[in-house]
Simulated scan of single mutants.
Amino acid sequence: MKKEDLPQDPGALDQFTREVVYVKNEDGKYETALSRGWDVKKDALDGAWVDVNQRIEDARKAVALGEKSPVHYFMELRLMDIPVLSGYTGFWGFFIKRHMKPGVFKNLSDKKLAKYAKAFDISVEELRNFKG
């Protein structure tokens, strides 16, 4: 893309940051330039956030209906998946899946709940008492 064609559409982070991109200057050589944003990229990211927020809401409803434990909700809220949560807690993915079952979750020790709470940056009480 030529430097003069660099989009400068206001984005979600327009007031906080700029994006560094490579452009061709008048001599045809690449250099870096700052862009405020690009509407196409903004629309794609907005669509992705709609999907993320829907997953979080679905997780909240699953907890409220007693189908899943709070581990599932907070994992979605913090944009984690099982391998990431496993890395933070040290639990194998198999056990995390089991801990997402309400019957298993209610019997977890304080030590295990503390590992989840630390990973989610909440208190053990918030985790234990979350009802959706």
Rank of each mutant, 00 (worst) to 15 (best):
M1P: 03
D5E: 04
P7K: 09
P7V: 09
P10G: 10
A12S: 09
D14R: 08
F16P: 08
T17E: 15
T17G: 13
E19L: 02
V21Q: 13
K24F: 00
N25K: 01
E26S: 10
D27T: 07
D27C: 02
K29M: 04
E31S: 03
S35M: 05
R36Q: 14
R36W: 15
G37P: 00
W38L: 11
D39R: 09
D43I: 09
A44V: 09
A48K: 04
W49C: 05
D51F: 11
R55T: 13
R55I: 12
I56S: 00
I56T: 01
E57Y: 04
D58N: 10
A62V: 08
A62S: 14
A62W: 13
A62Q: 14
A64H: 07
A64C: 08
G66N: 05
G66Y: 04
K68V: 03
K68A: 02
P70G: 06
V71A: 12
V71D: 05
H72V: 10
Y73Q: 09
F74P: 00
M75W: 04
E76W: 04
L77H: 08
L77E: 06
L77N: 07
L77A: 09
R78C: 14
R78A: 12
I82P: 08
P83Q: 04
P83I: 03
V84H: 13
L85E: 02
L85R: 02
G90E: 06
F91N: 01
F91Q: 01
W92L: 07
W92R: 11
G93L: 05
G93P: 08
F94P: 10
F95L: 12
F95S: 15
I96Y: 12
I96H: 12
I96C: 07
K97H: 14
K97I: 07
H99R: 03
P102H: 09
G103I: 11
G103C: 02
V104R: 02
F105N: 00
N107C: 04
N107M: 10
N107W: 12
S109D: 14
L113P: 00
K115W: 05
K115N: 15
Y116W: 07
Y116I: 00
D121M: 05
D121L: 02
I122Q: 01
S123C: 13
S123H: 06
E125C: 07
E126T: 05
L127I: 01
F130S: 11
F130C: 13
K131I: 02
